[in-house]
Design a protein around this nucleic acid. Structure first.
Lengths: 165, 165
DNA sequence: TTGAATGTGGATATTGACATCCATTATTTG
DNA sequence: CAAATAATGGATGTCAATATCCACATTCAA
């Protein structure tokens, strides 16, 4: 239903919002969100073109939010990479009758509208500040190890929690 | 957002529901719904495997609804050809924590749930019996010509209604 | 100024969704 | 049975989404 690109973009932007207003490099974001680094570049380009993030080349560079998590909605991110296409005209008619959708396509469009509405009403800050203390990219706080480690800090790092397979 | 296959399946099933309990051949459905005939075969196969339609080979054969338009929902049709995949577990975690989605994916799943709910609550008969007299596959009654014609009856046949390009 | 860090953009591969074609099977009618 | 009708299933083709790679441009620090 949602494209892989949307999934990646949202993961990345959540991570960026979480570290706002600081910058993160592409590789840092990729490691934290488990998105293929090479492809993440492309996705982030779309977000930059949509003026959702700023980029900075060179040493100490990276990506950061243009605005604040309070004002940025999930919908803006989604529309930047893979816009929700509302059904404007009957997909059957060569020349559709304006806004008069048939009952079938009206229902389908209403479904799209509900998604659009829900996403448009959700800011990044809302995603980040859930009351239950759950963490954005997984259901528990990220593993923070007080050491330089080989593996990047994975929000949802594979970990055996005692539960057998 | 919705796949082409879903679009085709819904068009076909609306047409079948509209002519229920009669049969329609694949080519009749294809002509009426403007779906590529060869591909429609594949889509209809999915509906048959889901026991939503019955098929009959040979002279006088075709496809018809198994049930009634009153009990068949859009969701059943959608799930037969391209199931709505709810987000059950965190897409990031190798081993996700059961049903505890992170805030981001919970929102995304809620959007999917709203689509699922809307589609599950809509029967084919509801689509067919809109109060405004609008017609299922387009916003006006189909062109019915009292003659044998070369072109099939297209519900949304391309027609110049006086509006310039 | 040099080199390391970092994003940019173009070329290219991979994959699955969409679509077509055709030989075959099943059914009905004459 | 023979012929016409109609669905079935397998093989194949096409294309856009996904994904990778690399040469290049930009920036900072030493």
């Amino acid at each position: 239903m949602f494209s892989q690109t949307v999934e990646y973009a949202l993961r990345a932007i959540v991570h960026l919002a979480d570290s706002a207003p600081d910058s993160q490099t592409k590789d840092e974001i990729a490691a934290a969100t488990l998105v293929p680094p090479a492809y993440l570049s492309k996705v982030l380009q779309s977000l930059r073109k949509a003026d959702i993030i700023q980029t900075q080349r060179g040493v100490g560079g990276g990506m950061r939010l243009v605005g604040t998590p309070e004002t940025l909605t999930i919908l803006q991110v989604v529309n930047a990479v893979d816009p929700i296409k509302r059904i404007e005209t009957c997909p059957l008619g060569i020349r559709s009758h304006g806004k008069n959708l048939c009952p079938l396509h009206r229902r389908m469009d209403e479904a799209l509208a509900s998604v659009e509405s829900a996403f448009g009403a959700t800011t990044l800050s809302e995603v980040l500040s859930e009351p239950h203390g759950s963490y954005p990219l997984c259901s528990h706080p990220p593993v923070r190890e007080g050491q330089l480690n080989i593996l990047p800090t994975l929000p949802c790092a594979p970990q055996t929690d005692g539960t057998p397979d």
